[in-house]
Amino acid sequence: MTLLTVDRLSVNLQGESGPVALVRDVSFTLDRRETLGIVGESGCGKTMTALALMGLLPEAARAEGRILFDGEDLVTADEARLCALRGDRIAMIFQEPMTSLNPVHTVGAQVAEVLRLHRAMGEGEALAEALRLLDLVGIPKARERLSAYPHQLSGGQRQRVMIAAALACRPDILLADEPTTALDVTVQAQILDLIGELVREFGMALVLITHDLGVVGQVTDRVIVMYAGNVVESGPTETIFAKRAHPYTQGLFAARPRQAGRTSQRGRLDTIPGVVPDPSAVIAGCRFADRCRHAVDICHRQPPPLVPIGADHDALCHRVREWA
């Protein structure tokens, strides 16, 4: 059953010389308990998409289209309503556990805060629940850690604290934006396992944003590949891993580091020549055309159509039918 429907979502940044589209016509659905990966290079619009879902876009950015959550449109919802949903029914964890926790508050208080806000718990009750949550996310000596400050914790532990706070109200959707990128390689796998485990246990839906295909293959049911603000390919994870259709997705796979668990810091794709076009650039055809080895005349002239390739598998490409 469909929990979230994103319908032609666009995010425009108000620049000094007119609006710049960071996200273009993104559409997808998310069922209850479904896990979805959004993959792409940095700057492809995946984080902006997540922030749009939270209603936390930067002040200069504006969302258009519809985001239907349980039948309610989040794009037009007022701030008070969004505040009530955030942290309660939709929660989010971020890339930098180092800076995402407030340095002057204790870990316990930061987890308890969500409960006090959405569950109207008193301080004692909320802290007791925070203790249970810290235990759940695998923080050793949780009772002592309750009164610790973030700087006294390791990166992995801080991310566990973030997860604990996000899970506190048992949200319907967990958004995870590059949750392991800033962590040590050995810790990355642990945190990923923890997220996968908790999502199953709590029956949450997960939107996992990453540049790392390995991470996606490990955790998600479905994948969306984004490039320069567009969804260029979407489908079940297994299908895409077996039969990548879009030239960009193929490039992503080719650029994957051979060693398991190793990722390049920024997720740059050195194997695909050229660079991502500037979001403000006016491009008549396909935004990937300049870097695409299959590009022909039409690719530079007309925007590509969304082509269904298989069951629930689409690609945004003029020529995809020729090989998929």
């Binding site: 939270m54 701030e79 942290g87 929660a91 930098e96 926790l101 407030n102 959405h118 706070a165």
Partner: peptide, 21 residues
């Protein structure tokens, strides 16, 4: 700062995030 975004993601209003965090 990132922790203000975290606070907002928890459901605190702009004002509450400013004063509390």
């Amino acid at each position: 700062e990132d922790y203000i975004r975290t606070a907002r993601a928890k459901g605190l209003s702009k004002r509450a995030a400013l004063w509390g965090h």
